[in-house]
Amino acid sequence: MRGMLSKTEIGLFVALAVLLLAKLILPEWAVTLGTVALARGLVVLGLLILWRTGLISFGQALFFGTGGYTVGLLRVYGGLTDIFVLTLLAFLFAGLLAYLLGLLISRYREIFFAMLCLAFSMMLYGVLVKTEVLGSTDGFNVVGLTLFGFPIEGNTLQTVNYFWMCLLACAMSILVHRYLSSTMGHLSPAIRDNEIRVEYLGVSVQRTINVKFVIAGALAGGGGAITAIAVGHVDPDAMVYWLISGEFVFVTIFAGTGSVAAPFLGSVIFELLRTYAFEYMPLLWQLTMGTVLLIVIVFLPNGLWSLVQRGPRKG
């Protein structure tokens, strides 16, 4: 397979083409919603990498928020306006933060790992909420963005951001797919099953996990950046609070971890479900989401992706 595209990668390219073409027929609101859903899918893609290693983070909103606030702060205080530059810096900063925290967090496993992530995310939340220059509970608007020096806003911004997000989703899925198919990637299930044996192979488990943590963090940061650009606003409750981390874990399990495409598909379905539940049952949308999650956990232990997976085998 070296040098060639695998089936998954061909699939991803086809998906990219479909998503890009879909812009022609999608209503405006669906473009924004699609962008946000794919951006959150990016975060879940990161969680998928961790999950394959048997780890889960209850604080992934820490990096999601870092990405969003990187864009917001650099726009407001740093004067940077280019959406590509801002997004890439968000990847970078979130990845850097993940690296630093990962030095510590990668020593932990299971629920301790999850809880430490939660603690750090709530620390960021505590700082943001109480700091007026960072917008405190209100957050602040992210407006006046540019593309190669030209100001863009409104529909143009949404469209460009959507295309950019589609490209990122495709590129990141392929990179993650290749990573998971590499030697390092194949160590994931091995670490999950028995890490001491892995260490006998001469591999530093801690370093391997830190790498995964950095990848997951950077992906979450990118997702946060795109979301901030699409929504035009960042605030701690929507980007850093533990409920948001909970939603990411929700989508990870809901979507299933069978493929790098699952997080995106799961995230899109999740967002659609939520916005319609919110529209038609404004006081019952949480109940709806909870019920759906229970049903998926009970009847589809491998997530929604197992439905897709089952299909091709028959045919």
């Binding site: 999850a114 874990v249 399990i253 019952l284 109940l287 909870g290």
Partner: peptide, 18 residues
């Protein structure tokens, strides 16, 4: 364990609206 947490999370969502 994580699945168990999510199950209680789902119950939490349901009870919030209940």
């Amino acid at each position: 364990e994580v699945i168990m947490v999510l199950v209680t999370y789902a119950v939490f969502l349901i009870l919030e609206d209940a």
